[in-house]
Amino acid sequence: MASTSLTNQNIECHILTLFDKLEAMRRDASLSTSRLPMQAEVRTLEFWRSIISECLATFFYVFLACGGGASLVGSGTPPTTPNLGTALATGFAVATLTHCFGHVSGAHMNPAVTVAMATTRNISPLRAAMFVTAQCGGGIAGAALLYG
């Protein structure tokens, strides 16, 4: 019985050591990748791909979420009545768009999320400003297409 508890302690020690080493490697990798200056960042294809993907993701999100809510307008039900269809459309839209655009730009789809990411320095201020602009434009375009 004493040998099994000693073995379990050794395994736990090795696992904790492994996690510490992995965390140190992750920290070193994030420190080694320095951020590009703004002039260089604007010239990269990845920068513009992420801005376009934020615009498209927000466009589709607003179009689908408002489209799900627009079904209440013509049905004669009061707008305060909860609608399962609207909730499902919005939830599935967020899940699908996050899977589609998450690897390109992070799929923020919300200026508040972008500002929070810029505040915590996960994205650059230039990228944050461009994301907010693209999100506002995509949201306006999605609503304009839906409501005419």
Rank of each mutant, 00 (worst) to 15 (best):
A118I: 01
S75R: 10
E23Q: 14
V62D: 01
S34G: 14
V94G: 03
G68I: 00
F63G: 01
R43P: 01
W48M: 04
W48P: 08
H108P: 04
G106C: 09
A40M: 07
T17M: 09
L84W: 12
E23G: 06
G102W: 02
T58F: 10
L97T: 02
L18A: 13
I52R: 07
F101T: 05
A116M: 00
T17P: 01
P79Q: 08
T17C: 11
T119N: 08
T33M: 13
G68F: 00
S105G: 09
L36N: 02
S75H: 09
M109F: 13
R26P: 00
M38E: 13
E54Y: 00
T81W: 04
L36H: 12
G68E: 00
V104C: 02
T86G: 08
G74F: 12
A93Q: 04
L88R: 02
A87N: 04
G67M: 15
A40C: 12
P111D: 15
R35D: 15
V115E: 05
P37W: 02
A65M: 04
R49M: 13
T120S: 12
L18C: 09
V42H: 11
G102V: 00
W48N: 08
A40H: 14
G85R: 08
T119M: 11
D20G: 11
A93H: 05
R26L: 09
S71P: 00
I52Q: 05
H99E: 12
R35L: 15
C55K: 00
L31K: 06
T120M: 03
M109E: 06
T98F: 04
R49C: 14
V113D: 06
R35K: 03
A40I: 14
R26W: 05
S32V: 10
M38T: 08
T119P: 00
Y61T: 05
P82V: 06
L45G: 11
H103I: 07
L97Y: 01
G76V: 04
G85P: 03
V104E: 06
H99I: 14
T58W: 07
R49D: 09
L88E: 03
M117C: 14
S30K: 15
F63E: 01
A107L: 05
V73N: 12
P78S: 13
S71Q: 15
F101D: 03
Y61D: 00
A70R: 06
T119L: 10
F92P: 02
R27Y: 09
G74E: 06
A116T: 13
T33K: 15
S71V: 07
R27M: 11
L36A: 11
A93N: 13
T96C: 13
G91A: 03
L88K: 03
R49K: 13
A29D: 12
R35V: 08
T90N: 10
R121F: 08
G67T: 02
L64P: 01
E41G: 07
V104D: 07
M25Y: 05
F60D: 03
L31C: 09
T80A: 10
E41T: 07
T80K: 06
V113P: 03
F60W: 15
S71H: 05
P111G: 10
A89Y: 02
